[in-house]
């Protein structure tokens, strides 16, 4: 009896009691849907259809048609992510002062809920040579020939901006509104104009949040697939890494190779996210309010 109490007390002291059991469903969920498939994929990638353990990886990094997909994907994902974050800051700064914030945020959430395929279908009609966009510009006499915005880099770029921006914006908005407005007022009272207030007060306090936003937006953009196929040139300029994985799995039925590509994809994402988080570690971390509230 005394032993049992001893164990319980010791566990309780480490913050574990009956309530701790409530994490079990979540742990099972993660194990079944994330850890197991990941480990299985990793295992699969080391058992190639032919060659030694690392044959898939060697093949990937020796075939330009495969390894260049990393560059292609980064060339899409990095500019899109940066553009989205940079755009979202001024918009968020303005929106936080609006009263009808809810309505606007609801409108912005719609593209997220629609999903990339629907947005891509919409853009196919809208941006096509006979689409509204080009017809309006031509009717207005701004251009003579339709702009080629589909089945190339820009089609995918635009679709990533449209589907990625709301997500980036909502994250940024929550970080911007988390900053105590009296800090900006204090800055103004001390003679700082808007630009200096942004640089010295808001930006340093936003940096940790913006880094997280960058990381999450990047991961989303890096795994681009539907719009690269539907709006891009999947054989050329927008042959992103997920297309390579898809082709390996469903055109060559080489699950092992597909798994290896997925692992490489994960490694690139992890590398960039870790780099961002390390950079964030250097920035100020702490509350974004100026004292007792």
């Amino acid at each position: 009896m005394s032993d049992r109490i001893g164990v319980r007390l010791r566990l309780a002291r480490r913050g574990m009691d009956g309530l701790t059991l409530l994490v079990l469903p979540a742990v099972l969920f993660i194990l079944a849907l994330f850890v197991y498939p990941f480990l299985y994929g990793l295992f699969l990638s080391f058992h190639p259809m032919k060659g030694g353990t690392f044959a898939n990886y060697i093949r990937f990094f020796s075939d330009p048609f495969l390894y260049e997909t990393i560059g292609t994907t980064l060339w899409l994902a990095v500019p899109v992510t940066i553009l989205n974050v940079v755009l979202s800051i001024p918009v968020a700064m303005r929106v936080r002062l609006l009263r009808r914030q809810k309505l606007l945020t609801t409108i912005l959430v719609v593209p997220i809920t629609l999903g990339t395929v629907l947005v891509a279908e919409g853009l196919l009609n809208y941006l096509g040579p006979r689409g509204w966009f080009n017809r309006v510009l031509m009717a207005a006499g701004i251009i003579d020939h339709p702009l080629m915005l589909l089945h190339n880099y820009w089609g995918v770029f635009l679709s990533l901006v449209i589907t990625g921006f709301p997500f980036t914006f909502l994250l940024t908005l929550s970080y911007v509104t988390g900053i105590d407005p009296s800090l900006e007022q204090a800055g103004a009272m001390l003679g700082a104009r808007a630009r200096a207030r942004f640089r010295h007060i808001l930006l340093p306090l936003l940096t940790p949040g913006l880094t997280i936003t960058l990381a999450l937006s990047f991961v989303q953009a890096f795994s681009v697939f539907p719009s690269a196929v539907l709006l891009g040139a999947p054989a050329g300029p927008t042959r992103v890494i997920s297309i390579a994985a898809y082709q390996a799995a469903y055109e060559q039925y080489d699950y092992s190779m597909a798994s290896a590509i997925a692992m490489i994809m994960a490694a690139v994402q992890v590398l960039i996210v870790v780099a961002l988080l390390v950079a964030k570690g250097i920035a100020y971390r702490g509350p974004a309010s100026g004292g007792k509230g």
Partner: peptide, 8 residues
């Protein structure tokens, strides 16, 4: 300021 508004 009432909450001091020090830059944290």
């Amino acid at each position: 300021f009432q909450n001091y508004a020090l830059f944290p």
